[in-house]
Amino acid sequence: MTNNEYPEEILQSLEDYNIDIRDFLPGHGSGAKLLLDFNKISGVEQVEGIILKGREIDNGIVADIIIKEGTHHEEPIHLCFGVNKESGIQEIFPRIIAEDNTDVKIQAHCSFPNANGLIHKMYGHFYIGKNCNFTYSETHYHGEKSGALVAPVAIIYVGENSTFENNFNLTKGTPGKVKIMIDIYAMRNSTIRSNIRAFGKNKKDSIRVRDSIFLEGENAKSLIKMKAAARDGGEVLMYGITEGNAPHCNGHVECNEIVLGKGSICRARPFIRATDPTSSVSHEASLGRFPQKWLDELQAKGLTEQEATDILIEAMLRE
């Protein structure tokens, strides 16, 4: 596939994240790939050990990804869900199975640069086998009109002795309405890290994230880190949920949110629950403005308060 077969606007849309989607297109790099142009599959590339199949349905696709036992790949599997149109519905049904002893990363780019009435939904099911190392990273750009409604749901099972890392990043552009629900079930000796970063920039931006981890296996460990900022009327609500339901499991929820400008709202609702007497679950949250001494440190370098605040947000939301 050549670059000019995929909308240029989408290819360029993640530049602010320092991501060039061209680097991930079929024919570039050695990773498996699936590209979607609205609801049409415009490119698929498979590599040894990874089965990647897409099937078009009425408003989107079903994507099956199977990582065969023992497969290790440095190069990430690239999923690009791009929509160049202003409006419409895009529904993605990914079904992902990582068989035992695999080590892979999935990098998903969801880019809707012209969104103005666009609906993007995802219903993902992940099964991660035993002794796996699996990273799923999703970077979003919803244009500058706050015109997207984005609602991904993911249910993820992480097998024994496996490590699963989830990264969700929506810090550039204007998000619009975003509702994210993630449920992760962690089995014996598994380790889960979930990093959520989001930035609402005006009163049309509303971001709600419910990130839940259920520690169901002995010695399972987890860490949820949620970082968000709301500016000029933007609204962010973060639910960080962890349940300790097995012996010696250990989980922590951390949430930091910054509120800037009148009418902006940040809310954090850590919810922790322990049902096993040997489990340990904790949380911490901070909301409000940046500490004055951080602003002073940057202003002593000649930055205005606004510039200093922008730098602090950039640092806080760094992927």
């Binding site: 440190e297 202003q299 002593a300 370098k301 000649g302 730098i311 640092a315 939301l317 760094r318």
Partner: peptide, 23 residues
Amino acid sequence: TITERAQLGITLAWQEPARIEGL
């Protein structure tokens, strides 16, 4: 202000320096 003084050519290296993690 602090910004105006910095722009005039005054700056300060802090006792607890470089606290801005992530840059």
